[in-house]
Amino acid sequence: METAIKTVDLVREFKTSRGVFRALDGVNLEIPSGMIYGLLGPNGAGKTTLIRILSTLLLPTSGDAYVGGYHVVREAQKVREIINLVSGGERPGYGILTTRENLIYYAMLYGYSRREAEERVEEVSRLIGLEDFMNKRLNELSTGMVQKYSLARGLLNNPRILFLDEPTLGLDVENARSIRKLIRRLVDDGYIETILLTSHYMYEVEELCDRIAIIHRGRIIEEGTVEELKERVSSHVIYELTLQRVDGDLDFLRELDSVIGYKVRLSDVPGEARLRIIMAYEDISRVIGLLEKKMYRVKRVVRDEISLEDVFLKLVGRGIDE
């Protein structure tokens, strides 16, 4: 299978007032074409930095990166001709222009004639489901519609490779679901050859991506399909506990050799919290004992199936949003 994106020992450092911050620390990736590839990691892991380098907006400090076979530094213009970029949580565009005018403008920036641009915009707007909003000014669109507009803009030049940086960031559940459906369709129906998607939403990556790389502190710490990643923690034991209260952290759990990682989140029931814990071997009785010793009341204990979240817990030792 042809390689769409390749990075070799990619490093990116930023100078800050507190010294040098290494956002990417020797990233090696090889992404085959014809798939949605997910880059999963917490905020600040280096996902966006990687996308910025691959889309030629940022130079690496060292190492090499190739997109569609072109070097992102030496052949930047060739890279730009085969890619596009869509970032979530932004409202880029000329608010005083209508959606149609914005899209025609961008299509013409890519070199289309007026007629070609109009045709391309119509085609893309149908695909994305923007037809009813084409005559509205961009500053009148909802956040969800703006993101659809951004996605449409990202398709105008018929890119081979599309970078989606947190495409559902800031969207409500319904809009996020609709965007995810669209993204899947783009590859399944052959509109885009390869998508590199970054996200810190587990379910998004799990639902959309054919392969996943987990990035943490600028390093790729695991790579594979969802099933492969789960398989790698299949010998581990996962429990979900309902606790009466959680104040302060539960780091005392790490005193137990069996505990690899845990994540706490609030329950739908007021005053309750859910503790998800991943252990190297069956040791739940000691976990409960330790919790009760620390005055935590355990209301319910359920042994659970392995999820992508558990893979992350195992690799990083904490939840993605902690």
Binding site: S55, T56, L57, R80, I83, N84, L85, P92, G93, Y94, Y106, L109, Y110, R153, N157
Partner: peptide
């Protein structure tokens, strides 16, 4: 829009 214009 600058980054998108830069790419286009």
């Amino acid at each position: 829009t600058l980054k998108y214009t830069y790419l286009a």
